[in-house]
Structure formats: structure tokens, C-alpha cells
Simulated scan of single mutants.
Amino acid sequence: MRIAGLVLGILSLIGMLIAFIPCLGWLNWLNIPFAVVGLIVSLIAYNDVTIQPNNQPKTGIILCAIAIVLGGFRLLVGGGIF
């Protein structure tokens, strides 16, 4: 679960960076829900008390949050399409 959240965070950040290319801003409509799923998985892994503390869930949370915030900002600036 910890590694899954981290991988989803990395993939959502890569998707967000691809969506910053002009005329590919619509990709954020797919990337933001993907990042929300990664955020939920990372939060579940972070709150698991049976596993010793690790930085992987924290990193997944941070990466997904960055992808959500910057992707939403890109959609806002681009009018939802560009």
C-alpha cells in the first residue's frame, strides 16, 4: 500500500507536467481524479498503525497534493481546455 501510493504520486506528477504543455491542458481532467485516488491510497497507508513509520506515504501525499493543486490551477488559467 505504501509503494502504491508513492507510485501513484509519481505518475500523477508526471501527468501534471505533461499537461503543462500547451494544448494538452485537457489532460488534467484525467490527471486530477487519478491524483485524488493516489492521495486516498497514501492517506490510508499513512494511517496504518501496524506498519512502522516510513516516508513513502508522506511523499505520496505531497506529490499527489502538488499534482491536484497545480493541475487545478492550470485548468483555471486555461479555461478548462487549454
Results as ranks from 00 to 15, higher is better:
46 Y>M: 09
48 D>F: 06
68 I>D: 01
74 R>T: 11
69 V>C: 04
45 A>E: 05
38 G>D: 08
62 I>K: 05
51 I>K: 15
48 D>S: 06
21 I>G: 01
81 I>F: 15
76 L>A: 15
11 L>V: 10
12 S>T: 10
48 D>H: 10
3 I>S: 10
76 L>M: 10
7 V>A: 12
45 A>H: 06
48 D>L: 04
52 Q>I: 05
20 F>C: 11
5 G>P: 00
71 G>L: 00
65 A>K: 06
13 L>N: 07
3 I>Y: 14
20 F>Y: 14
76 L>P: 00
61 I>V: 07
10 I>N: 06
11 L>D: 03
35 A>G: 04
26 W>I: 13
32 I>K: 02
12 S>M: 05
26 W>M: 09
11 L>I: 12
28 N>L: 13
64 C>I: 02
29 W>Y: 11
5 G>V: 01
34 F>L: 03
71 G>S: 00
34 F>D: 01
79 G>Q: 03
65 A>T: 15
6 L>R: 02
46 Y>W: 14
15 G>D: 07
12 S>V: 02
38 G>Y: 11
43 L>C: 11
12 S>Q: 06
22 P>S: 12
71 G>W: 00
60 G>V: 02
69 V>S: 03
28 N>S: 09
70 L>C: 09
64 C>R: 03
23 C>N: 15
56 Q>P: 01
56 Q>K: 15
74 R>N: 15
3 I>F: 13
67 A>L: 05
25 G>T: 05
66 I>S: 02
42 S>V: 04
49 V>D: 14
46 Y>N: 09
9 G>H: 09
7 V>G: 00
10 I>K: 07
31 N>E: 09
2 R>I: 07
21 I>R: 12
17 L>I: 13
71 G>N: 01
30 L>S: 06
77 V>A: 10
77 V>D: 08
35 A>H: 07
14 I>A: 14
70 L>V: 12
63 L>K: 04
77 V>M: 11
4 A>G: 02
27 L>N: 02
59 T>M: 13
41 V>G: 03
71 G>H: 00
76 L>S: 10
78 G>S: 03
11 L>S: 10
34 F>R: 00
37 V>Q: 06
82 F>M: 11
59 T>E: 03
79 G>S: 03
1 M>G: 08
60 G>F: 06
82 F>L: 11
36 V>W: 11
61 I>E: 00
70 L>I: 10
69 V>D: 00
51 I>R: 15
62 I>T: 13
81 I>L: 13
68 I>N: 02
77 V>Q: 08
29 W>S: 05
74 R>D: 15
2 R>H: 12
58 K>L: 12
48 D>Q: 08
68 I>R: 02
39 L>M: 08
63 L>D: 03
68 I>S: 01
40 I>G: 04
81 I>K: 08
14 I>E: 06
54 N>Q: 10
3 I>E: 14
67 A>E: 00
21 I>V: 14
36 V>I: 15
21 I>C: 04
13 L>Q: 09
38 G>I: 07
9 G>Y: 07
78 G>F: 01
44 I>F: 14
21 I>W: 13
8 L>C: 07
33 P>K: 08
34 F>K: 00
72 G>E: 01
12 S>N: 07
